[in-house]
Structures are given as C-alpha cells and as structure tokens.
Design a protein around this nucleic acid. Structure first.
Lengths: 373, 373
DNA sequence: CTCAATAATTTCCTTCGTCAAGTATTGATT
DNA sequence: AATCAATACTTGACGAAGGAAATTATTGAG
C-alpha cells in the first residue's frame, strides 16, 4: 500500500479491501464487519486518508431511530492509483487501464502477428505506453494468460495456445515495462474480478464458469482461490457426464467440453459455429438438439460444482455465450435436474461478459496484489 | 488448552497442532515450519510442557555435517488428556476412547432399539460412562451423525436415517454427559481425522470418499474443511456421470449413487448385496459387470473432484469397501480415464477403514476443538 | 438549553512476537 | 585437555497492533 512499507498493518488491508469491494462504509460499520474495535479502525483509516486512498463522504441520512452523531462513510478515491491489465491471446493483446475501483478508464486492442516471447513483450511495451497517462500513479501491471501459470513466481509453465513453455513472464514483463507485474491464469483472474467487484462480492465461496472453445471454471472456497495441488483445478470441461458419450481429446469420454465446446458443436451439427447458431435460432431441429445437449451437459457439470463445493453463487459466462439465448434454459434444466437438495438453491447467473472483462480481471489481480502489499 | 484461558496464544495452538500431526519436532524445526522466531517457540512451548501436554525427548542423532548442540525434539504426552468419540447410527452407538494422539484406547458398541432422541441420549450417557476411566482427564465428547449438521451450533438440522429434525444435540448431550460436546457430520469428521492423523497429514488440500449405502465425500481445500454455503458439500454421490443412466431417488439421472450405491448394486444385479459380491467373486459375468460399472462410476466421480479442486491426496474408503477387491481396479480405471492432465497424478488410496474409524473421527473433531480452545 | 443517542478519537495498557545478545552442548582441532 | 566452531535454546528489551474505557463530537428530541 505504502510505497515504502513492505508489509502493512493487516487492519489497513482489511479496511481498504472492505471499502473497495463493498462500497462506502462508516468506521463503526467497518469495525463490526471486520471484528475490530472502533479504535483500531480509526487508526487504520488515518494513514489511508493521508495518503489519498480514502476520503470521508459527507454525513448522509440518519441510521437508527433516535438521534446521534451522524456517521461519515469512507469511500475510496479511485483516481489515486491506476492499474494496467492485459489479456494475452494467440492473436491479440487486449489491454485496459483501470482505476483503484476497477473501473475501466481506457481500453485498447493490439493485434499479434506471432507468439514469439520477445515479440509479444515488445508489443506489450507499446500497448502499455499507449494506455498509461500518468506514470507516477500507475505502477502495476496484471497479465492474464490461458494455461498453467504459477502466480507466486510469475512463471508461465505451459500455455497451449501461445506455445509457451516455462516462460518467466513476470521477470521479463517487469524489465520490458518498468512496472510491478502479476501473472495469473485468465479464468482465475476473471474469477477474482467477479469475486471482488462483481456478483461474487462478499461470498465465502463462489464459482465462475466460462463457456467457449474450452469450458473452464474458477473457484473461490473459504474466501480463497482454489489452485489445485498438481496445477489442475476448475477443469469442469473434463468432467464426464456421459459414459457412452464422445471421446474427448483429453482421452476421457463424455467430457462436458466434448459435448459443449465450440469444436464439439461444430462437429456434432456439421456446420460452422455461426451457421449452427443461426440454424438453431431459425428453428432447425438438429442444430437445436446439439445446443440443447450442450447446455444440459454444461448444467450437469455446474451441478457437480454445486454438489461438491456448494458455492454461494455461480456465474456462467464466456465467449461462447454469444449464443447465450440458445444455452441458458438448457443449462438451467441440466443444473436443476442434477443439483442435489439445497444445492439447487444456489443462484445461477447466466450472462455474457464484455471482452474487456478478461483484461479487467488481469488488472484486478494487480489491484489485489497492491492492496495486500 | 488451558482449562482457565478462553482463547490461547495462537503460537501455542500452532505448536501443539504441528507436534500432534507431524510427530516429534525440535524447537528450531517448529520455528522454521511455523514461520516463527525460535524465541516465540520457546515461549509457547514452556507452558505446554508445564501443563503436561508436551515432553522433551532425549537428544538423538546429529543433524548437520559438523558439530553443534543436539536438538531436543518435543513429543506430545498422549495420556495427558482423553477424548470420547461416538458415531450415532440408526441401530447402534459406536464409541471409542482416544488419547490426545488420537490413538484408540477402548472401543464399545451399544445397540439402539429406537431413535427417539431422549432414548438415544440415555444410551449415550451409559456408553460414555462405560468408556471413561478417568473423568478428570476426559472432558470432551465428539459426536458424528450422518446428515445435515451445523457444527458451530451443535444443531442436527436433518438426519434422514435417524429421522431427526432440528435437534439441539450439543446442548442435550452436554447436559446428559457433563462433557464439552462437538457435533459434526460423520463424513466430515472422518475427513478431519484423515487430514490430521491419516494420509492427509500436511496436505493443503485433501479428499476422502466413502462408499456404502450412499456415496459421500469430505473435502479439505486451502487447509480448511469445505462446508458448502447452502449446507451441501461433498455430494459426490449425486454427480451425474451418465445422462442416459438410471433415475436416482434424488431426481437426477445417472448419479454415481444410482449406479454404485449398495441399493443400486442390489437392483442391478437382482441379488442381495452379499450374494452379488459372492457371485462376482465366483466369476459371474453379470454381477461382475455391475461391480465394474459401479467402480467406474465412482472413479469418474472422483475424477470430477480431482479436476475441480485438485486435492493433494484422495482416500477412498467406507463400509461398502468390504467388497473392495471388486471395486478397486475399476475405480482406478474410471479415475484415470477421466482425470485431466496432471490431476491423474493425484495419489489415490483405496482401502477399507475399520468401523471404529468413524467414532475416532468424532473424537478427532473434539481433539481439534480442544487444541483450538 | 439540556439530554439522550450514536460516532469518532484519545489515552493507556496488554498481548504477542521479534531482535539481538547470551548460554548450553556437542564434535573437531590443536 | 583446551579451545573453537557449530548448532540449539533462552533471555530480556523492545515494538507493533489492537483492545477497553473514558472523552469529545455531532446530531435530534423534548
């Protein structure tokens, strides 16, 4: 938080996090929510105001029935600090500039003509230069990459789409941009963004499912992101939902992805994806059945998540959800059939997220790293 | 820990937990492992020795290459404190007396002729009296019940086999026995036992699967037990693995339990369970196929766990595993087929646990509560 | 104008853990 | 044997963080 201090009082982190994710709160409210004394909150807040991260809102309406000194809610000064987030895909860089409140201030796409690491880093440097207005207030960059990423070391162990193996991306990107860099898997980054600034706010456990070429899932359990001991977690796409189903490229059978991934829909409908969507919307029975089976498979996979970890909320999103009208009811059908008991009560939001959202996820990870510092 | 203190220094809890679960450790080793200074460990250890929970082992072999003062490893005095654990089933109480190291010292079964709460509590009182030798050193009782249990309040919300609804079991049992009581779901209790004293020791994440009438699962993620926001978690038995499979009593289709539960095996083989086991062992093709399909369904469900949360270790156990020779290879087949990438590396222990283990699980929960107090 | 009610701050204090220096206990070297 | 290096443990001074309770601030109601 403070540029000087290495690790800051936990109360400060807690206060800033609460205000960031839950909006303006008075000191008393913070004390209650965080299980701290009012005194501790007062002390934690002072330096945050002095350094410009928080400000006091004017007293607003009364709280209780009687009288009493009005509370002064504390709000973040979102413009105090800016963060760059970049999602690296095989054919473009998608970059955003966010403020401390994770609002997107600027957004740029930059095509990639190759995936050579040096080239990508050069392009990343240009993108960052184009995004940043005020270098003194922008000190962090978050990168989101699909594949196996070790956030702690900033190492990209393996990224299939980029054909990267063991790339020390954090180190390289810090040299290339001069910013403090965090690297995270793209789905996990998006999950963190939804957990801090989206529908997952305040939830002890939360799941985000992305539907597209692959079908992925990010999980938050007991307030923390699930990482998986062997580098695998959230692979909802390879849960088997049909023992007699099609063989998947992973060697499994009846994987959700082998039924509902973009490629699967192309294969099963005999059309390209856009034509399949058009046909299904036009009432074509065969195409409709393909989407129905796909939606149900996804719903079934989501039910597995609900049955196993019981998240407080599940958000379904992703590129493929351009065809979201074709999926939604079937996803719900599959989910409701297969969710056990009270797990069926888990609220399910099915909605597409704008494409910049992935880059915003990357920025969010860097906001988190900043707040925790 | 101290009978007087309400909440004790976190370092003391950390030290005691480490020695309890990982065996004798010197102060330096503890300091390194817990991220504390040696001084802090020294201070935390002193009262634990004074109160008889820890003792210093004689210095043993040299550590490093050169010389140096030999370390004195600290070990727990398991006999310092005893814990009663009772698993309540529909037709009997299974009780054990454990020491602080979770070793079973005594084990008693007591048949139940009904499930009326008052009657069960009376019988529980007798069982506890029979188990306890030394009341001054036995102050805690752990209860394990199947169904929906709220550990925090000690309330049994719903237990299908016992036909209990909203029974304030902790309160009632404390009155009946005079002991401090913890109540937990049986599968979760067993999971905690394996995590602290079994194969899950030291794992950040861990899963235990029980096979029997129902098929259940306990999960530890990021070092904490998963509870589920809506009271549901670990319901591996109702993951759908075959969209065209049999309809389950839960309303789902192709649930693991509808293929591999004891009832399902009876239904699908046309024999009672023991005969089905005998037939399969004798080489009967139909019975063999039923067990094969069951094992594969379980393996597929376990793969879903591995793909989603990526535990460091999975233990498969339970009553049904009396027929464990018939299941094991098929469980592994299903698991290996459906586990994605590195998730397939997750070690899978398939082995039956003695029946007292469930009661020991209950005792373990009370040990945990004691150490954290 | 005073009082009750609530919010925020201040002061003092406890707790917990670190730091750095010292003590203890060993094997190896002179 | 005396000394030294290496490692384990202990001690006491200190500091950071947060709590308790009294104090101050700010409002509405009578």
């Amino acid at each position: 938080m403070l540029p000087e201090a290495e690790s800051v009082a936990p109360a400060m982190t807690a206060v800033l996090t609460a205000v960031l994710t839950e909006g303006p709160l008075s000191r008393v409210a913070l004390a209650r929510r965080l299980g701290l004394s009012q005194a501790a909150v007062t002390k934690a807040v002072r330096p945050l105001i002095e350094q410009g991260y928080l400000r006091e809102l004017a007293a607003t309406e009364r709280s209780g029935p009687g009288a009493g000194r009005p509370a002064s809610p504390l709000a973040i000064r979102a413009g105090r600090e800016f963060f760059v987030g970049v999602k690296i895909t095989a054919d473009e860089l998608i970059g955003v500039l966010c403020d401390l409140g994770a609002q997107v201030r600027k957004s740029i796409h930059r095509p990639l003509l190759g995936n050579d690491v040096d080239y990508v880093l050069t392009e990343l440097g240009h993108l960052v230069d184009d995004l940043i207005d005020d270098r003194t207030r922008t000190r962090r960059l978050g990168l989101a990459v699909s594949g196996d990423v070790d956030r702690a070391t900033g190492l990209v162990r393996y990224s299939p789409f980029l054909h990267w193996h063991d790339v020390p991306l954090r180190e390289r990107a810090e040299k290339a941009t001069g910013l403090t860099v965090t690297v995270e898997n793209d789905v996990k980054a998006l999950t963190i963004a939804e957990h801090w600034f989206g529908e997952g706010v305040g939830a002890e456990s939360f799941a985000l499912v992305t539907v597209g070429t692959g079908i992925g899932c990010g999980l938050v359990v007991n307030g923390r992101l699930v990482s998986g001991s062997h580098g695998v977690a959230g692979e909802i796409g390879h849960i088997g939902v049909d023992v007699n189903g099609p063989v998947c490229h992973c060697g499994g059978r009846g994987c959700v992805e082998a039924i509902a991934g973009t490629d699967a829909i192309v294969r099963r409908s005999g059309l390209n994806f856009d034509d399949a969507v058009a046909a299904a919307r036009a009432g074509d029975v065969r195409a409709g059945a393909v989407f129905a089976a796909a939606g149900e498979a996804i719903g079934c996979g989501i039910a597995a998540v609900a049955n196993l970890v019981g998240p407080a909320h599940i958000v379904v999103s992703g590129e493929g959800l351009a065809a979201y009208d074709l999926f939604e009811t079937h996803i719900r059908t599959g989910f409701e059939r297969q969710a056990f008991g009270a797990a069926a009560q888990c609220p399910l939001s099915v909605r597409p997220l704008p494409f910049e959202e992935w880059a915003r996820g990357a920025a969010t990870v860097s906001i988190q790293a900043f707040v925790a510092s």
